[in-house]
């Protein structure tokens, strides 16, 4: 009896969550659905099924945005690598090393999370301009390493907090130097959190719009999200072409997410419990 009651409350939850899910994903389904249609099909009969699996839109869209892929991968991967290096070292030190005043120093780093960098975008642009990195991928990358490292340090620190101190002390007693502790103990142990930091920041910076939009002015340097906005701007009501452009970008990202969702979801949820 009781079991049945609990099962029925699960059914209600599942129905509500499924409704949420349908609403969440509906725009994406419309996007994919529209991407196979030509202009006439969209205007005449929007809700009808595509007449055939028409890939013309995809070919045109790829010609337009394919060139941005290199820029996107370059800026994203370099920023992510930087964030990983900076945050693993800092997180380890904040958690395990005897450093004078490390608590207030850690709070200072966390305080930077509270700076609304979106409003600072113009001064930040003036900043990269003053060091000659405007219209340069490094202007995008270095600033993103700085802004991305705060959340990453929080994740890595709380990860290392969960590891026993004795692990690192034992290595030192055995005569392992700092460097050896680092390569033989720290890096292998922190694989899960490194994975989370990589995956989370990859999606964040691959999808970033405002900052690269402002820093990069040469068309040859721009990234995919900016290319998509331009595609929409130049092709007014050609929704088939636009949707194909969005789908080319969105579908691989969604597949990548589904493949890495354990690392993404578990890492964020376990590391942040205390935050």
């Amino acid at each position: 009896m009781r079991k049945n009651k609990r099962e029925s409350s699960d059914v209600i939850s599942i129905i509500i969550l499924s409704l949420f899910l349908v609403c969440t994903l509906l725009p994406l389904f419309i996007m994919v659905f529209t991407s196979f249609k030509d202009q006439n099909e969209i205007l005449m009969d929007f809700w009808g099924l595509p007449e055939r699996l028409n890939l013309d839109n995809y070919i045109t869209a790829w010609k337009d945005i394919g060139g941005y892929a290199y820029n996107s991968f370059k800026t994203t991967l370099l920023a992510v690598s930087g964030i990983v290096v900076v945050s693993v070292f800092a997180g380890y030190a904040f958690s395990k090393l005897p450093i004078k005043g490390k608590k207030p120093l850690f709070l200072v780093v966390m305080g930077f999370r509270m700076v609304p960098t979106g409003l600072l975008i113009i001064p930040m642009f003036m900043n990269v301009l003053s060091i000659g990195l405007d219209n340069n991928h490094w202007g995008v990358i270095l600033t993103n390493i700085a802004t991305g490292s705060t959340m990453a340090v929080m994740l890595t620190k709380s990860f290392f907090d969960q590891l026993p101190d004795s692990l690192f002390e034992a290595a030192k007693i055995d005569g392992a130097g700092e460097l050896k502790t680092l390569t033989n103990i720290l890096i292998p142990l922190s694989k899960p959190i490194i994975g989370t930091v990589i995956v989370f920041n990859f999606f964040t910076y691959f999808n970033q719009f405002m900052w690269p939009y402002i820093v990069l002015s040469d068309k040859a340097l721009k990234t995919i999200p900016i290319g998509l906005a331009a595609l929409a701007g130049e092709n007014g009501v050609d929704f088939g072409l636009q949707s194909a452009g969005y789908s080319i970008v969105a579908i691989p990202l969604i597949i990548l997410f589904l493949a890495t969702s354990k690392i993404y979801v578990n890492g964020i949820t376990s590391g942040a419990v205390k935050g």
Binding site: L25, L28, F203
Partner: peptide, 25 residues
């Protein structure tokens, strides 16, 4: 549900915004 409900998080927000622009057109 924990995975599928957050799918829009991993694609560029520009896409979500532009698809909605199309919905509202």
């Amino acid at each position: 549900f924990r995975t599928s409900l957050i799918i829009p998080m991993v694609i560029p927000s520009v896409i979500i915004i532009l698809v909605w622009k199309f919905l509202y057109y």
